[in-house]
Computed example of a mutant assay.
Amino acid sequence: MSKEISEFEIICSKVDAAWAALQTQYAERLTAAEIDFLFSRLVLGLSSPFYAGREPALHFDVCGELVGRKLPPERVHAALHAVPQPSQPWVERAFDLAEEHGAKIGMTLAQQRDRTDHTDAKADAAHRELSSGAKEQVG
């Protein structure tokens, strides 16, 4: 499995949970366009630890794919290309906070993945060492 696919899969579970949380918390308080944009900002933050250092077009495409898991194409386009007029004074700050919160979650996921990769690499090295030692004893 390629690293990009595994990163995408890692992020997907959090994207699904984020959408559900936004619906629960804001469905009665914000417009659909505001929720969609809030979601896109959260996805941007969530994916940044994995993709921000790469080609910007790749990161943008990943965001589009992730947002598209919950929104139809026309809403994905609007969420990624247009900032809705805030219906309430606090909403604009919520957009920034969503991205910050997503980035914190993404950073935690990236660190967990890195620890797992490091542990797996150590286990693979130990296995190779044991396997080569066993072959020497047999041979």
Rank of each mutant, 00 (worst) to 15 (best):
M1C: 00
M1A: 02
M1V: 04
K3P: 01
E4G: 00
I5T: 04
I5P: 03
S6A: 03
E7C: 01
E9N: 03
E9P: 01
I10M: 04
I10S: 04
I11N: 00
C12K: 08
S13C: 07
S13E: 05
K14R: 06
V15L: 05
D16P: 02
A21R: 06
L22G: 04
L22W: 08
Q23H: 13
Q23C: 10
Y26K: 02
Y26P: 00
T31M: 04
A32V: 14
A33H: 04
A33I: 08
E34A: 05
I35A: 01
D36N: 03
F37T: 01
L38A: 01
F39T: 01
S40L: 03
S40R: 00
R41G: 03
L42C: 08
G45M: 01
G45S: 10
G45K: 01
L46G: 02
L46D: 01
S47N: 01
S48K: 05
A52C: 06
G53K: 03
G53M: 09
E55C: 07
A57C: 09
L58Y: 08
C63A: 13
C63Q: 07
G64S: 12
E65A: 07
E65Q: 11
L66D: 00
L66W: 01
G68H: 05
R69S: 12
K70Y: 08
L71I: 06
P72G: 10
P73R: 05
E74L: 12
R75S: 07
V76P: 01
H77Y: 11
A78C: 14
A78K: 07
A78E: 06
A79E: 09
A79Y: 09
A82T: 15
V83N: 06
P84N: 09
P84C: 13
P86M: 14
P86G: 12
S87P: 05
Q88N: 15
P89H: 10
V91T: 07
E92K: 09
A94P: 06
A94Q: 09
D96V: 14
L97N: 11
L97V: 14
E100M: 11
G102S: 12
G102W: 00
G102V: 02
A103Q: 10
A103R: 08
I105H: 09
I105K: 14
A110E: 10
Q111H: 15
Q111I: 10
R113M: 14
R113V: 13
R113I: 11
T116K: 13
D117C: 12
H118M: 09
T119N: 08
D120A: 13
D120E: 13
A125Y: 04
A125G: 07
A125K: 11
H127Y: 15
R128P: 07
S131I: 11
S131A: 15
S132D: 15
A134V: 05
A134F: 10
A134E: 15
K135W: 14
K135P: 07
E136K: 13
Q137S: 14
Q137H: 09
V138F: 15
G139M: 14
